[in-house]
Write a protein that binds this DNA or RNA. Structure first.
Ligand code: ZN
Ligand code: ZN
Ligand code: ZN
Ligand code: ZN
Lengths: 132, 132
DNA sequence: CTTGTAAATGTTATATTATTACATACTGTT
DNA sequence: AACAGTATGTAATAATATAACATTTACAAG
């Protein structure tokens, strides 16, 4: 059962716009889009983004400084994320592969370090771009 | 056999400072450190960083916007990188695990995408920080 | 040696991404 | 009502990164 997170007003506005876009959005592009709704300052956006990342509704694509809605309903905690990124068209999608996540969640080496979280980004060419 | 890359003056200065530090360095902290050597502008640093990343002498830690010297002599192409990051002391080290790299380099799913590169960041607590 | 070309450098300005600091308001609980 | 925790508003600024343009260096082909 998923934990219900009652999003606040700003959080909801910002989640909706990211979710609807279906692709990674940058903070200042979000800011631009929500100015008509009364959100005027970067900090208002970043605060909502922080919270949404924390509760796993969105993820940050680190290599792109962009945010995408979680495409994996079971991933409500942001502790194990994997993405595929097309270096040509910049299409991004969340990889949901149980073998991969199992492998990485259980990964350990001889460093003595306990891993509690990971983020993986694959790069390449998507189907479309490959065939051009 | 490793390809010999004859670093230019700026590239060498900037690689040396990162390599000696042994830990991730941020671009503007590098800039500060190299000002006595005549490198005065951000762009001079970023250009050298770009080139060093391209030839695999350093890697960017995306979640930290920082750069670390390659700790893995065999990793001369930046196409398969993995790091462990302590969320307490921010210690970072490059993971060199052939099973892991084999697993990820061969990873494919049904998206039709051909992955040519990946970057993985593990987070957790290092040995020291765990025992505190 | 000179001509061409790619890579590297220097310099200024500017764009993009993110946080600090401080004041105020809302939400739910005791 | 009093409190604690979360969320909001606003201004200023910090931190990260690139654009644009001029010049110089390295090196190979002719
Ligand atoms: Zn997700
Ligand atoms: Zn593509
Ligand atoms: Zn390496
Ligand atoms: Zn540590």
């Amino acid at each position: 059962m998923e934990k219900e997170h009652n999003l606040s007003k700003n959080q909801k506005i910002i989640f909706d716009i990211i979710d609807k876009s279906g692709e990674p959005m940058k903070a200042y592009s979000i800011l631009f889009d929500v100015q008509k709704k009364g959100i005027k300052a970067p900090l208002q956006v970043y605060r909502a983004l922080d919270k949404l990342v924390e509760i796993g509704k969105i993820h940050k694509i680190e290599s792109r400084n962009a945010f995408i809605a979680c495409q994996n309903s079971s991933c409500q905690i942001t502790k194990a994320t994997a993405f595929s990124i097309c270096e040509s068209c910049e299409n991004v999608s969340e990889i949901s592969n149980s073998k991969l996540s199992k492998y990485l969640s259980n990964f350990s080496d001889d460093s003595g370090m306990k891993y509690s979280k990971y983020n993986l980004e694959f790069f390449g060419l998507c189907k479309k771009c490959k065939s051009k």
